[in-house]
Amino acid sequence: MAIVATTTKFSVYGRPVLAWIVGLLFFFPIFWLVLTSFKTDADAVKPEFLLFFTPTLDNYLNMTENYDYWRFATNSIITSVFATIFALAVGIPSAYAMAFNPSRATKDVLMWMLSTKMLPAAAVLYPMTFITKSIGLFDTHFMVIVVLMLINLPIVIWMLFTYFKEIPKDIIEAGQMDGVNTWGEVKEILIPLAWGGIASTALLCFIFCWNEAYWTVRLTTTEAATLSKLIEGNRAPEGLFFGRLSAVSAAAVGPIVVLGWFCQKQLVQGLTFGAVK
């Protein structure tokens, strides 16, 4: 409708209003979670305090006491950060190799990597429990990091691959003429040039690690348990602790939602494997 002057009242007023309503509706549950987190447990279930209440920070201040929040949060941070670092450390050389030195098998290798992502986790649930328990790595940070890294590695490699492909091959060849070795190509040319892509890949990988809720729940008990496990373990407070549960939930998702805002575009690329442009 921007094409010709067929401007209707709907397109000027109706659509924006509708769009805002839909946007607010989708955001409402998050807003409600945050709002509830400022109510006392008692107020949270009383209709008279639905919107107007005396806000309190107690739920946040008592997170450690109520849920041992920081222990789980620390685990989430440690596992997500290290899984992301390792995924990049393995993924960057791999994507570099495939983007700039492709062989005839490269395409198949990429597709195969993707297919590992499509394997239902539950199918290997028991073997994974069995293996981790028999080598004594059950409920350890190390195991969670390894698993998180492996489940995100295909996406990391794919995203990096699509970013690296955008770098003209000429520049890499100019580097070869100028005397850089393989390590130099990566360090002097590839990483500085694809810095933005690498950063958003890292961000997205971190978010996926943080939100992961199958292996982190099934392969941990206490030592390496993450926030997913914490929330899952306190799922049904039967109305008793809505306030404090909201606070700990908001603390678990808040930073990630904000980070997510910064990588909307990359998300499309990362999740559709470059098939939607």
Partner: peptide, 20 residues
């Protein structure tokens, strides 16, 4: 011999400058 050791310099069609 690898490219950098041949003592040749190349000017590319796309210039291939390092943009960073």
């Amino acid at each position: 011999v690898p490219p950098s050791k041949r003592g040749l310099a190349m000017v590319f069609q796309s210039y291939a400058l390092y943009p960073h």
